[in-house]
């Protein structure tokens, strides 16, 4: 059970790394989107400092959405998804492996890029560590919820637009508690509660999302 699971993650990672610039699209989008904000709201440092946690989280959320439709779509198109579902691995674990691979190729780069962008937005120094921790806890939830949306739309021609409509409303709590943690650290009313809730949400998503996504895949692959 463990070996095919790891093999599937490894395969997806290799596919992503050999895809060239395509796998970096999310991070590039994240950087550009964050760069647009000072151009839009003005370069005043105190204003940027105030909106920084929210801007960083919203842009990270949108960037994570960007590559969701690729989670199952390419494999479905060339038929390898059906091959994988015939294998020894239960579909729930297939979904989990795919979500983990998606997070490693999208979520983790976003987490790594966030501190640099935080400097550009003049985020208070108190917020840096919490920003990274909150993104580390929150972005896997996005990949997991996103896997449900990706599974539901896998056979559809214009699934990419639909995924955002399905997944973004469900991601609201992640955004709220992620930003809440960073602001709690900056303004001194504590980040612990928000981070604990994010961790709880991650556990719930880890347990429940693969079942929902697997049910959706079974339906769409019929």
């Amino acid at each position: 059970m463990v070996r095919p699971f790891l093999a599937l993650i490894g395969r997806d990672l290799r596919l992503a790394f050999r895809g060239g610039i395509g796998s970096l699209v999310s991070v590039v989008f994240f950087v550009i989107a964050v760069t647009l904000f000072p151009l839009g709201v003005g370069p005043a440092l105190d204003l940027l400092e105030r909106v920084a946690p929210g801007v960083l989280w919203v842009c990270a959320l949108l960037a994570a959405m960007l590559s969701l439709d690729r989670m199952f779509h390419d494999d479905h198109d060339d038929g390898s998804l059906e091959q994988i579902t015939l294998g020894a691995l239960p579909l729930e674990l297939v979904v989990l492996a795919k979500a983990i691979a998606h997070w490693l190729t999208t979520g983790l780069p976003l987490v790594l890029a966030a501190p640099v962008l935080a400097v550009l937005l003049n985020l208070s120094t108190e917020g840096f560590v919490v920003l990274i921790v909150s993104l580390l806890l929150g972005s896997p939830i996005l990949s997991l919820i996103g896997s449900v949306g990706a599974a539901l739309t896998v056979g559809l021609r214009r699934g990419g637009v639909l995924i955002s409509l399905l997944v973004l409303p469900l991601c609201v709590p992640v955004l709220i508690f992620g930003v809440g943690a960073v602001e709690g650290a900056i303004y001194g009313f504590g980040e612990r509660a928000h981070l604990l809730i994010l961790a709880g949400g991650l556990i719930v998503a880890l347990v429940l999302a693969p079942f929902a996504a697997a049910a959706a895949l079974r339906l769409t692959l019929e």
Binding site: V148, L166, P169, L170, P173, G201, A212, A216, L219, T220
Partner: peptide, 16 residues
Amino acid sequence: AAAILALVGLVNLPII
């Protein structure tokens, strides 16, 4: 498919 989405939403809406 919409039924699966509705059930995911049922878990998520109270959290939201």
